[in-house]
Computed example of a mutant assay.
Amino acid sequence: MDKRKIEVCFTPALLPIYDISNAIVVVIDIFRATSSICYGIENGAAAIIPVATVEECKSYEIDGFLLAAERDGKVVEGFDFGNSPFAYAEDKVKDKTIVLTTTNGTYAIDESKKTAFQVIIGSFLNLDAICNYLKSQDKDVFLLCAGWKNKFNLEDTLFAGAVVHHLKNEDYYLDDSSISADDLYNIAKHDLEAYTAKTSHSERLKKLGIEEDIKFCLNVNIATTIPVLEGNKLVKLILN
């Protein structure tokens, strides 16, 4: 059997150059979409439907779902909430279906689902669960960083590096992007909060007065569930 691959894609803009038909794609948007999705599914949300546009999100209004929309770090006017993880607490989302659109994360999900073998959602909150699942599968690993408006960002690359760090001794082939992400994680891993304080998105969120979101998204292994895309819905992955 060919050795499994780990590849890191720093931005969805690079996605067309990769073949992900045999890959489990881990979509990463640490500040804040994938952290909030993981927290919501952990807290019993029935499903989260990721959509690419605000207009599409609004179209679900007649279905009685909770509608969540974020652009440039802010809740879009007229929606129930955005992508702060604190909006996805159990008392708000348990047994509910949420329709979500964000600046970067839902776009990355939308693009990757077109050709991926499987799409799952990763964050520091469920790091060990993600890594243990990937180790148990015979598929390639593709770590897709949502970035910021199709540009590279640090925090998503750090999480990709954390996954590489946990998997690299499992006889995978690592591409250069994976090696560089692992190196970056090794620099930052002892104080993620201090390292990510200099990121551009961290600065954006601080200007909006939501530093607590940043701190929360850097919690490691407080969730054990993995959101997986089934059809157009993210639901809890059921392990056999």
Score class of each variant (00 low, 15 high):
residue 165 H to C: 06
residue 145 C to N: 09
residue 128 D to G: 04
residue 161 G to L: 08
residue 165 H to D: 15
residue 124 F to T: 02
residue 154 L to P: 00
residue 133 Y to R: 13
residue 135 K to R: 14
residue 170 E to N: 14
residue 163 V to D: 01
residue 167 L to S: 10
residue 162 A to V: 11
residue 138 D to S: 15
residue 141 V to S: 03
residue 122 G to D: 08
residue 155 E to A: 12
residue 163 V to P: 08
residue 140 D to T: 14
residue 125 L to F: 14
residue 132 N to F: 10
residue 122 G to Y: 11
residue 153 N to S: 07
residue 121 I to N: 07
residue 161 G to C: 03
residue 156 D to Q: 09
residue 133 Y to P: 11
residue 160 A to T: 09
residue 134 L to D: 07
residue 147 G to Y: 09
residue 136 S to C: 00
residue 166 H to C: 13
residue 162 A to G: 06
residue 152 F to A: 05
residue 154 L to I: 12
residue 138 D to Q: 14
residue 164 V to A: 10
residue 134 L to V: 00
residue 151 K to E: 15
residue 153 N to M: 01
residue 150 N to G: 02
residue 128 D to A: 10
residue 170 E to F: 07
residue 136 S to M: 11
residue 156 D to L: 06
residue 132 N to D: 14
residue 145 C to Y: 09
residue 130 I to M: 08
residue 151 K to D: 15
residue 167 L to W: 05
residue 162 A to S: 11
residue 169 N to G: 15
residue 148 W to E: 14
residue 163 V to H: 05
residue 153 N to P: 01
residue 129 A to F: 00
residue 133 Y to V: 10
residue 141 V to W: 07
residue 146 A to W: 09
residue 146 A to Y: 05
residue 156 D to W: 13
residue 150 N to D: 11
residue 121 I to P: 11
residue 125 L to A: 11
